[in-house]
Each structure stands twice: as structure tokens, then as C-alpha cells.
Design a protein around this nucleic acid. Structure first.
Length: 322
DNA sequence: AAACCTCGCAACCGCGACTCT
DNA sequence: GAGAGTCGCGGTTGCGAGGTT
């Protein structure tokens, strides 16, 4: 995002009539300040839900759907706006790689972010890069590029920013704003052997957990055994699903509980997942392949950037081990 | 300066699932 | 059980702002 924030409000009241559905006498299009005020006021006193009747009772010539959307995506007090942070980007990439376009599900793990915002982010940024790389966003090639190139690079950048923030440098920037709102994966160490745990990333784990006893290294990055996933609990839920014989009901944790208070936890969690879950050879494969410069990898723009990325992509394809 | 292009995002639409009567 | 009403999700569109030619 470039920081520009628009209210989505129709400033030209003269256009109002043009947006009225003659037949139903329902308004469409951008919301006015007055409409926002009415909706917010109504919900603050009487609560949300029953959107169609709410729209009528609040005196809004809108569909219930429209009211719901406006409230959830814009007026709700806990809606966060502004740049998607690096941590959030990382989470989105990770979660999308597992769940696909399940935007609302992904949004559950990014407090304050709406499914619409995440969806927009994906379409405007991620799909753009896929297009630039001339591959389909759903192709294995693009998924590999994301997992082996973009995500590690994001991790590098987060760590770089984190390191410089702890040394008091000016580059605290993008990670500082939302740390307290991010969630981190959990791993139930009390799992019995008949149960496969699924954390909020939807990852399956064996009874020994995600994190091996071997510390692997990638470009300037070490993941300590047992860190991250085992150290934190996340908001939302931890489900247990049936494996062979028994079925255990879902364990619900409050979404407000146990938000990440340490950036390294999130990083290590996602990293451990990246290492252990799908692509155990990832970090060996990547050794020496990813340049360690901390440029703005995500903000690919120049021809040189494309060339570099395509070279790296080709290396991945030629590597042959995945 | 004006026309055109690109980007980001709010809002709408269709549809399936769910709830109520 | 059937039909109507409602909700929520994912896909798509339209528009304003800023950049480029």
C-alpha cells in the first residue's frame, strides 16, 4: 500500500440520486458521511446482526448486505488500516499456500485485517508478481518461487528490521506497528499419540512436534530447535482431528488471547513450518542460492530485479530436488 | 497541461449454507 | 419437509488518485 487512505465516501451529494435504485428505492455505491453516522450509531446502541431489518430500522436505504459489508470492512472500530507489514505478508503467503483463497479464514489470523483487504492485497501484489514472472499464480512454479524465494527474503527483511530496531537504528519502520496484534502458531505438547494436532496454520504435526532437533541454517538465519511453535499459543482455535481411531472435539481458544508479543516467535514459527512441514530440504536447497543482500525483494520493479528473480527461479527449477 | 495508464481499494454480485416459520 | 429470509464467502467491477507520456 502506498499510504493513501480514501474514505470511500461520495463527496458529491448531487450524485446521490444517481445511485438510488428506482425500483427498490435502495442506494448503491459509495457511502456518505451521513449514512456512516447512522449505521455506526445504530450498531453502537443496538448491536449488529439481522442486517436487513437493521438497515430498515436505521433509516438506511441500503440492503442489509451493504450495511454488513460497510460495517465489517470499514466502520468497525477494530479495523486496522495502512500498510500490510512484512510479518503480515509472510503470514498471508504461508496461510494462502495452505488454504488457497480462503480469505475469511486467513483473515482470522490477522487481527484487524478484513478478508477483503487480504484478498485485495493478494490480487494487487502477489498476482502482479506472478504476472511479471510470467507464470500462473496457481502453478507449482509460482508456489515454489514464493516458498523458496519470497518468503525467505521476507524473513530476512523482518529480521534485518528487527535487528536494527533493537540497536536503535532508524530502520524500525515496518515491523513496529503491529507486533502486538499478530498471532503465532501453537503446538500442543500434551498431545497423545493417537491424535494429530492441527494448529491455526492448519498444519499437521507428529507427536514429536514440528521442530526437529537439528538446527538448520540459511542465509544469515538460524532456527533454534523448539523455538517458535512450541513457545507461543495463538488466538482462535486449536483443533484436534481424528487420525486412526479417536475423534476429539475442537478446543476453542479466545482470539484475544496470547497474541504474539515477540517477533522472533512468529518468525521462528513460520520458519519451522517452512522447514519441517512441506519441504524438509528447503534450507539445504537454498544454501548459497539466495543472495544475502537485504534489498527490497518484495518490491520488485526494475528489469534487473526481474532478471535476478527469473535466474533464481531457474536455479530452483534446475535444482531437481523438489 | 492534457490525455492516458496503472494501481489500490471500496463496494457490489452471485451463490451456497444456514435459520426460521 | 418446503419455502422464504438471512448471512457469509469468494469473485469481480468501478472509480479516484497518482504517475507517465
Amino acid at each position: 500500500m502506498d499510504g493513501k487512505i480514501r474514505l470511500g465516501i461520495n463527496k458529491n451529494m448531487g450524485d446521490l440520486q444517481n445511485n438510488v435504485d428506482d425500483e427498490m428505492d435502495l442506494r448503491r455505491g459509495p457511502w456518505t458521511v451521513e449514512e456512516d453516522f447512522k449505521l455506526s450509531n445504530y450498531i453502537s446502541t443496538l448491536g449488529e446482526g439481522r442486517w436487513n431489518s437493521l438497515a430498515r430500522c436505521a433509516g438506511l436505504k441500503r440492503t442489509g448486505k451493504s450495511c454488513r459489508l460497510r460495517w465489517l470492512n470499514y466502520l468497525r472500530p477494530d479495523v486496522r488500516r495502512g500498510n500490510i507489514t512484512l510479518e503480515e505478508q509472510l503470514l498471508i503467503l504461508e496461510l494462502h499456500s495452505r488454504w488457497g483463497n480462503r480469505w475469511s479464514k486467513i483473515a482470522q489470523y490477522l487481527p484487524g485485517r478484513t478478508d477483503n483487504e487480504i484478498k485485495n492485497y493478494w490480487r494487487t501484489r502477489v498476482q502482479k508478481h506472478a504476472k511479471q514472472l510470467r507464470c500462473d499464480v496457481n502453478s507449482q512454479q509460482f508456489k515454489d518461487t514464493m516458498r523458496y524465494l519470497w518468503m525467505p527474503r521476507l524473513v530476512e527483511r523482518i529480521q534485518a528490521a528487527s535487528a536494527s530496531s533493537t540497536t536503535g537504528s532508524a530502520a524500525k519502520s515496518c515491523v513496529a506497528t503491529t507486533t502486538d496484534q499478530l498471532v503465532i502458531t501453537s503446538y500442543d505438547e500434551g498431545a497423545n499419540n493417537n491424535t494429530t494436532n492441527i494448529d491455526h496454520l492448519g498444519l499437521t504435526s507428529n507427536p514429536n512436534g514440528y521442530v526437529s532437533n537439528v538446527s538448520r541454517e540459511t542465509s544469515s538465519l538460524k532456527v533454534s530447535p523448539g523455538s517458535g511453535l512450541t513457545d507461543y499459543h495463538m488466538g482462535s482455535e486449536v483443533e484436534k482431528v481424528e487420525t486412526s481411531q479417536n475423534l476429539v472435539g475442537p478446543q476453542i481458544m479466545s482470539p484475544s488471547q496470547n497474541y504474539l508479543d515477540d517477533k522472533s516467535g512468529l518468525l521462528n514459527g513460520v520458519l519451522a513450518v517452512m522447514q519441517e512441514e512441506s519441504y524438509p530440504n528447503l534450507f539445504e536447497n537454498m544454501n548459497g542460492m539466495i543472495p544475502s543482500y537485504s534489498d527490497s525483494f518484495w518490491n520488485i520493479g526494475s528489469d534487473e530485479d526481474f532478471w535476478l528473480l527469473q535466474q533464481q527461479q531457474q536455479q530452483l527449477l534446475n535444482h531437481g530436488s523438489f
